[in-house]
Amino acid sequence: MAITLKEVEHVALLARLYLSEEEKQAYTQQLNSILEYMQKLNELDTAAVEPTAHVLPLKNVLRDDEVRPGLPREKALAGAPEAQDGQFKVPRVV
């Protein structure tokens, strides 16, 4: 299952990354050698094996639904590249 230059371009778009021609070439080659190494996993028959997404036997950690103080708005906005009227400001979308 080799990854093509076209697929690298598609994945870069999904990941919201611009890649230079040089980077596209390098990533195609490097991802291929890494993915080739991953083929090793196919030596194992895992049809009857349950996946492990998480190691702890924890499920749905909930707390009472009550109002508690959170991060104050000014603090939450303090690190924003642009803010206005107590809100994050982004380039025009529509």
Binding site: M1, L14, A15, L17, L41, V49, E50, T52
Partner: peptide, 25 residues
């Protein structure tokens, strides 16, 4: 890039899910 590829449609089962099963082993 690697992670986005492994999670992308058509490759999820072959790569990501496979890896989670191997994690169990």
């Amino acid at each position: 890039m690697l992670g986005t590829y492994a999670l992308s449609s058509g490759y999820y089962d072959a790569y990501y899910l496979k890896a989670l099963k191997v994690r169990t082993l």
